[in-house]
Each structure stands twice: as C-alpha cells, then as structure tokens.
Design a protein around this nucleic acid. Structure first.
Length: 895
RNA sequence: AGGGAGUUAGCUCAGUUGGUAGAGCGCCACCCUUACAAGGUGGAUGUCGCAGGUUCGAAUCCUGUACUCCCUACCA
C-alpha cells in the first residue's frame, strides 16, 4: 500500500484522474440501455468564451446531478456543446482583424466567415478544456456546436415549417439597433444604464398664431422625424388645439396635433412630440393614428437624407447642432438635468437606437399557449417555484420575436428573394428558381438568425433531430425529454421559454422536466462581477490555487436555491481545508490498515458480531443517519443540506470522535477486535468517499484508488443509500449511540473544566465520576480507557459522589442518565475561575428553570400544548433543578 | 411604475407543520497530544429590520411600515 503525502495536492491529482476517467470511457452514456435514463443538456457557453465563475457554479450543479445519478444506476448522459454566439463571436474576430487594420467589409462575407471558422477551430476547445479542469463528466463524444450540419438542418427545418404555418413573417418594425455592428440586437444585448442627461424644452410654433407649444425631450435630434404632437384628449389647456398644426422648427414640416390617452397631463408640459420611427412608444401611437414614419438614420446610425442639413452627422453631433440652431432661433426654452436610463449595446458599448427596418419575425401567441399550459399543469416545474409566476407573467405579455440579424456569422436565413416577383422562396435546400414565378433570379436573404433561434432547438437538435436514422431516433427516444435544465435566471425568457415552446411544437413534449434556477455569482460585496470593476475572478485560477474540489464544494455547500451567490475566496480556502481533512483522515485509516486482511467478499463482508466494538456500532449508526440525510436532500434538490450533512458527519463524527476512539484498538487490542474495527473503518471510509464523490470527484477518486476494499472506480461505483447498505447498517445500534453519547458528554465536560480553568493539556488529571445508576456505571467502566485517553486523565474513580471539597463539578445529563464529573483542583489552579464557571452555569440553569416554571404553571399552556412538548419540558425542568442543587452544593465546598 | 426576493452573530447564510435561536468563516484563550497547525481543545457574540395583531407561546402566521437587491417597463 502506498503512503500518502501529508497534504492533499490537487495539482498532482486532478489532471491525472480526469485523464483516467476519460480514457476509461466512464462519461459515455448508451443510446440503448436497460438502465433508466437521466439526461441533462449543458447550456452551451459561447465558443469564444472563457469559463467564468457563473459557468463554474452552473456546471458544478449539473455534474453533481450527473455523477449522483450515474452512481445510482442511471444511464446518465450529460451533453456538452458550444454556441456560435453570433454577435459576440463576430465582434471578437472583428476586433482581432482591426489590429491588422482590416475590416470585415474589406474581406467580404465569405472570407470573413472563414476567418471566424479559423478562430473557432483554434480556440473553440479552450472552454472544453477548462470544463475538464472543473471535473465536468460530460459525454464528450456528443459535443455539439450550434453551426454543426445536424443542428443547421434542424434550424432550416424549423424555419421552413413555421414559415409555411405563417408563424414566421417579414415586416417593417422598430427594433433595437447597434450602429457600430450595423445590426438589430435582442433585448438581452441591451444594457440599461442610469445616465445623467438633460431634458430640453423646445417651442413649436402653432400655425396661424404667434403662440408656441412647448415640448420636452431628451433626444432633440429626433424632432427632425416628428410627425405629430400629442396631448391628452381631456386636457383643457390643449383641447381646442387638437387637429390644428404646428411647424417643426429647423425643417419646417407641418405636423398635426393629435390626442391620445397615452399622454400624462401632469408630466412636463403635457405635450409630447411623436417620432414614430425612433421611439417605441411613439411607434405604437404612430400605428394607431396612422402617422407618417420618417427614418432619420443610416444603418451606421448617422443622420440620413431625411435629416436635411444634418445629413451625415453622427447622432451626438446632430444633437449638438440641432440645439445650437434652436438656440439661435430662440426656440430652446430651457435645459434641465434629468436622470435617464439609456440602452447600450452590450458588445460595442454604443447607445442603442430604435431603428425602423425590415426584419423577420416569429409569431409567439400560438406557441405560448401550450408553453404556459405545461407549467400551469406542473408537467414542467421551476425550482425555486417562484419563477413560475415570473415565467407566466412574461408568457402572457409575450411579443413577436425579431429573429433576423444583420450579421455574417450564424445560420443564414433559408429564404430566397425573387427579383422578378419580389416573393420569397423558403426552403430547406437551396432552390434554383422562384417557387412563385419560376424565375431563376433569386438571391438568398443576407441576414442570419438570432443566436437564440438555434439555442431554442438545442434539447432536440443536439440529439439528432430531424435526422431519421436509427441512432438519432434511439437517442431521442432514450433521452428526450431531459430531466433537468440548470441555468441562471438571466436567460429564462430568452432561452428557457423558447426551448419550451419549440420542444412542444416540434417534439410534442417538454424539453425538460425541471428547470433548476440558480442565482448569479457576485463578488463578496454582492456586486456584479465585471471587467470594468476589476472584481472578476477566474475559476481556473481558483482551481490552480485551491483545487477544483474545494471550488465545487464551496459552491455546493452555500447554494441556496435561486439566491445570488456571493463568492469569496476565503470560503474556497475553508473547503480546501476540508479536502485536506478528508485526505488526512483517509491517510490515517490507510496507515492503520497495513496489516488488514482484506476479505474476499469485499464490500459485502460484514463485521464479526462477537468482536464489533461499541464505537463501530456507533459510527455505523451515524453513517446510516447521514446516508438518509443526503438522499433526502439530493432528491429535494437541497444540495447544500447534503454537502453540510457530509461535512459535519465526516469532520465532527468520523474524524473528531471515531478515529480518536479507535486509536487504542488499532494499537493494542486483540487481533480479532482489531480486524473487525479495521473492516468497519475500511468500509465506512469507502462509503464516505462514495458519498462525497459527486461533490468533490477528484479527491475521492484518488483516495478510492488507494482503498483496500473497492471496485473498479469510484465514479462508477454504487452511491450509498440506506437501502443499498441495509446489511452493513444493520450493525448500527441505538444502545451504542446512547453509550457513546454519554462518553462524549463526559469527555467534553472534562475538557470544558480544563479549558475554562486554563489547566494545561500537559497536566494529567485525577478525576472521579459520580454515578449511582448501575447501568451508567457499567457504561463508564466499559469506556474507561477512552475517557482517560481523550480526557487526558491520570486516575479515574467511578462511583459515589464522595468528597467534593475544592472540586470542579460538571453535571452530565442524558436521558435518564446522571453523571457528575468531579475534578479536585487543589494545587492545580486558584479557584476563582472555577467559581466563576460554576456561577455562570448556575445562572444559565436558573434562567431555564424560571422559564420552564413559568410555562408549566400556565394553565393554558398545559391545556393547549402538545403533550409531548409538555413532557419534554417537565423532564428538562426536573433536570435543571437537580443540576442547580448539585452545583450550589459544589460551590459551598470552596468556602 | 409593475413584478419578484430579501432584512437572523463581525461576515456569508441555515432555520420544513409556531414550543427556550444554529452552522461555517472570523474573533479570544490555551496547545506542535504519534492523520491533519490547511490542525486540536475550550470560550465569547444575536430585542431574529421596526410597529401592531392572532396565540398559552411568534424568527416562524396576519396587517402595516422602513430599508436593500433583482427583473421588466420606462415620462416624452
């Protein structure tokens, strides 16, 4: 047997262990299997991305589930993948090119896309390798990229099918537009920031009078596109003006004054300028009042020919110029500071402009109906449940989805425009002629689809749909629907909701049974992690420093469903310490198994009843308890409960007590006793390692490989449960639990007296255990050596109280058992500390007594309370009273 | 503005049918006791945001209120 280093060093273990798992093929799931299926599809990270802490948290949860289920006899399949992430990737490569002063337009579409592929082929696996560092046990053979041929085929099929159902259409709409990227962007890509700006009040001359109407705006340059002024229909100030016209300054266009209840009479002047082509609210008004839509911008967000003299200016410059000109005309009434939240493009940082353009849209109303129903009926569940409401609220207010993007990187829209008849031919395969007029003058639409379009199909497109070959059909049959989707709450609408709609539409079933929503990872002060704040932490750096297991455990032990996660490196360190603790406990166990005769039955071997110690029976009882707790917690998705139950069992029971108790047996007992304890110890450790495995896979696999009793590998061994371990756990005993509990209490009492009196651990004490009950006396005698060892005792009498002159006394009460720990202090310390200590104890006990007395003498309490509660309180009161008496007696001995 | 979550020890947070407040970290004291100083033993620390109510009894249930955070939508 190898000897292990006295410190666990993850660096030496992790890479090696991962490689061994992967080479052995343990991550692979079978398309056909007798085992029940369990599947999770990984939310695909951006192919350009680095693993960040958010991924690390997300993946840790999924890997926990997968490893737990794999060990529990499931055909566990975790499918990894990456997302082409249209805008993000295109921007990254564009930036790279910019360094060489090349623009994508210089290269042209084909060459530019080739550049991106080159980049993807070079860096696309980076994030996969980072995931390996974390320990993700994905089925790598199934790794899928959103631009893979299979997925692309799925995208085309979905587009064509929905188009033919009239669920996809092309239309002129107002969309969020990024000037630098020259594309529509999704709401997700718009970041709102509170910005201090100015509100400008501008006078519009009322035609035929010398009066003005004053409007207020934060974006004066848009006035060039005004096509109406709007007032509230009931506003007495303006009622008579409705239907009259005003002249837009600077461009001298006459526009009508209209009325709409949208206007708030009490805000500003009560008059609103309407720019239907550049504001989402104005757009709606423009539609209802059939106003003219004047687009002022080019795709680069510069002023266009409609802006007259301002043509060619950037928006910001146009604003300056417009203000100057207004001032010159005396029409700028005033400027006042104004807080405004302004949308910025998350990729380019530019201000997002509402922009009128031809886009492809997907109708959402019909798709939303079944997607709501499955959540309402409970066939798809959110955890935590509170997201159900949020989801339904959104689904009830859903708007059509703009699915086209003016990018080059992504799934090109499978629609061909005919130059002759202007109609579109939409087809899964490239057509040669227009299906309407048979003209061959057709060209494919330049746009690509929003990245979330392909993401929405992810749960089944990754399983081979719509390919009808046997293996693809089998995969879908086995693994669809998946069991869990694990994700942060930021993409429930953009992604989760769309997967649900698409899954129901095309697979006629939910894509997953449970959506486990975790919070976002924040810094220790609760701030968002971002490059600009400089507070982002690289998980790989954490893994390098403290090990993947410590990082994983720090997530799992503090994960409370749905809440944001405040990350702290200090906490990772504390779990690194736990990993080291497990390592060292294992090291100790292994060193005590040097001469262990490994039974041929392996884990099926049972300890010899005749030789099993009370300590063994006790730890088995505790093991049974923790196995139960872990199972309940994992089933209920209370991962932190499971993690902390294991932490406490291992540290506070197994290490603190069991190992200490069994040391004497290992050193100087009869060979049979020793062999029995060795067996128990080896088997308990084996189970500890398996129980921990999904939480901290590397450490446990490494320890496992050194165990004397084991199977092939920890990762594929069985997960311990009360049911699986029935025969072994039958050795647990209530009597042993009680016995050890008394012994622990006695030892703690001794340590307590020693600690509070500052008696050096080097001093061995002479003590007396006052006990009158025969059975308790027997227990104490039976465990004499354990008490003497752990209490650091020189001599110990067990019997009547005897003389308590100048003695420290600590009463121990457990159930019916009563023990007095009596330590003569004469010559050891001055008594003040002990007198203080006893006073403190009495004080606390008397508080309890008065509280309990009050309760029990309250007639209504006795009448109404649960009889069990009353009984417990009675016992407690009795005990506390007894203890007070005996402590007061002890106190008198110091006088 | 609408929706959601929260307020418990110095910090991060548990607290599942109402029954004398818990953990980890940190802190203090003493210890290199032969697995582990990334360790051991002992200790201190809370008007459970505030105010009412229901109840014999409330961190827990109800009402109100203050503050914080998140999401969605933003007033031109």
């Amino acid at each position: 047997m190898k000897t292990l280093a006295d410190r666990y060093s993850p660096q030496e273990v992790e890479i090696k262990v991962y490689k061994a798992w992967e080479e052995a093929g343990y991550f692979k799931a079978e398309d056909q299997s007798k085992k029940p299926p369990f599947s999770i599809i990984l939310p695909p990270p951006n192919v350009t991305g680095f693993l960040h802490l958010g991924h690390a948290l997300d993946h840790t949860i999924q890997d926990l589930l997968i490893r737990w289920k794999r060990m529990s006899g499931f055909n566990a399949m975790w499918l990894p993948g990456t997302d082409h992430a249209g805008i993000a990737t295109q921007s990254v490569v564009e930036k790279e090119l910019k360094k060489k002063t090349i623009t994508r337009h210089q290269l042209g579409r084909e060459k530019f896309v080739n550049e991106i592929w080159k980049w993807k082929n070079e860096y696309g696996d980076r994030i996969y390798n980072q995931m390996r560092r974390l320990g993700d046990s994905c089925d790598w053979d199934r790794a899928t990229f959103t631009l893979d041929e299979g997925v692309s085929a799925a995208v085309r099929k979905v587009f064509v099918t929905l188009y033919k159902k009239n669920a996809i259409y092309k239309g002129l709409r107002l969309v969020n537009w990024s000037g630098p990227l020259e594309t529509a962007i999704s709401d997700l890509e718009v970041e709102h920031q509170q910005v201090k700006g100015l509100m400008y009040h501008i006078n519009y001359p009322i035609d035929g009078t010398s009066d003005f109407l004053t409007i207020a705006t934060t974006r004066p340059e848009t006035m060039l596109g005004d096509t109406a002024l709007c007032v509230h229909p009931d506003d007495d100030r303006y009622k008579k003006l409705i239907g009259k016209t005003v002249t837009v300054p600077l461009i001298n266009r006459k526009i009508k004054i209209i009325a709409d209840t949208y206007v708030d009479k009490d805000f500003g002047s009560g008059v609103v300028k309407i720019t239907p082509a550049h504001d989402f609210n104005d757009y709606k008004i423009g539609k209802t009042h059939k106003l003219e839509f004047i687009n002022l911008l080019t795709k680069k967000c510069e002023m266009n020919e409609n802006a007259g003299p301002y043509e060619g200016l950037k928006v910001a410059d146009a604003r300056k110029k417009v203000l100057e000109d207004l001032k010159a005309l005396g029409l700028l009434v005033k400027e006042e500071p104004h807080m405004n939240s302004i949308g910025h493009c998350s990729r380019s940082g530019a201000v997002v402009e509402p922009f009128l353009s031809e886009q492809w849209f997907m109708k959402m109303d019909d798709l939303a109906v079944p997607a709501k129903r499955v959540v309402e009926s409970g066939s798809l569940r959110f955890e935590p449940e509170s997201w159900t409401k949020v989801y339904l609220h959104w689904m009830n207010n859903i708007e059509d989805w703009c699915i086209s993007r003016q990018l080059w990187w992504g799934h090109r829209i499978p629609a061909w425009h005919c130059a002759e008849c202007e109609k579109y031919t939409v087809s899964e395969t490239t057509p040669t002629q227009c299906e309407n007029c048979k003209s061959s003058k057709i060209t494919q639409d330049e746009d690509v689809l929003d990245t979330w379009f392909s993401s929405g199909l992810w749960p089944f497109s990754t399983m081979g749909w719509p390919n009808e070959e046997a293996h693809s059909v089998e995969t879908q049959k086995t693994f669809y629907p998946t069991n869990y989707l694990v994700t942060g709450h930021d993409i429930i609408f953009f992604w989760v909701a769309r997967m649900i709609m698409m899954g129901l539409e095309f697979k006629k079933d939910v894509p997953f049974r449970t959506v486990y929503v975790h919070g976002l990872v924040r810094d220790s002060q609760g701030r968002k992690m971002s490059k600009s704040l400089g507070n982002s932490i690289d998980p790989i750096e954490m893994i390098d420093k403290h090990g993947a297991d410590a990082l994983r455990f720090s997530f799992l032990a503090h994960l409370f469903s749905g809440k944001d996660f405040k990350f702290s490196e200090q906490r990772v360190e504390s779990y690194r310490n736990f990993m080291n603790k497990v390592w060292n406990a294992s090291r100790f166990v292994l060193s005590n198994l040097q001469d262990f005769k490994v039974p041929v039955e392996g884990m099926k071997a049972l300890p010899a009843r005749a030789h099993i110690s009370v300590f063994d029976q006790w730890i088995i009882a505790k093991l049974a308890e923790v196995e139960k707790q872990v199972e309940v917690a994992l089933e209920a998705e209370r991962f932190s409960d499971a993690a902390t139950a294991l932490y406490q069992f291992i540290w506070n029971q197994f290490c603190d007590w069991y190992i200490e108790f069994t040391k004497p047996i290992m050193h100087s007992s009869s060979p049979d006793d020793k062999q029995t304890t060795q067996l128990v110890m080896a088997q308990v450790l084996n189970r500890i390692v398996r129980l921990l495995h999904p939480f901290c896979p590397f450490l446990t696999e490494e320890i496992y490989s050194n165990l004397p009793i084991k199977n092939q590998a920890c990762i594929i061994d069985q997960y311990p449960t009360v049911k699986n371990d029935k025969d072994f756990l039958a050795f647990a005993s209530k009597e042993a639990e009680f016995e050890i509990d008394i012994v622990k209490e006695v030892i703690t009492a001794i340590r307590n007296i020693r600690g509070e009196n500052r008696i050096s651990p080097a001093v061995k004490l002479n003590i007396r255990l006052g006990v009158t009950q025969d059975d308790v006396q027997k227990i104490l005698s039976h465990n004499r050596s354990a008490i003497m060892n752990l209490g650091r005792i020189a001599t110990m009498d067990i019997g009547e109280d005897g003389d308590m002159m100048k003695c420290a006394v600590a009463p121990v009460v457990l159930g019916d058992a009563r023990v007095k720990v009596i330590i003569p202090l004469e010559g050891l310390v001055d008594f003040n500390e002990e007198i203080k200590r006893i006073h403190k104890t009495i004080e606390k006990l008397e508080k309890d007594v008065s509280l309990l007395n009050g309760k029990l003498s309250n007639e209504k309490f006795v009448q109404n309370a649960d009889p069990e509660v009353i009984a417990t309180d009675r016992v407690l009161l009795q005990q506390s009273k007894e203890q007070v008496v005996s402590l007061k007696e002890a106190l008198t001995r110091f006088q």
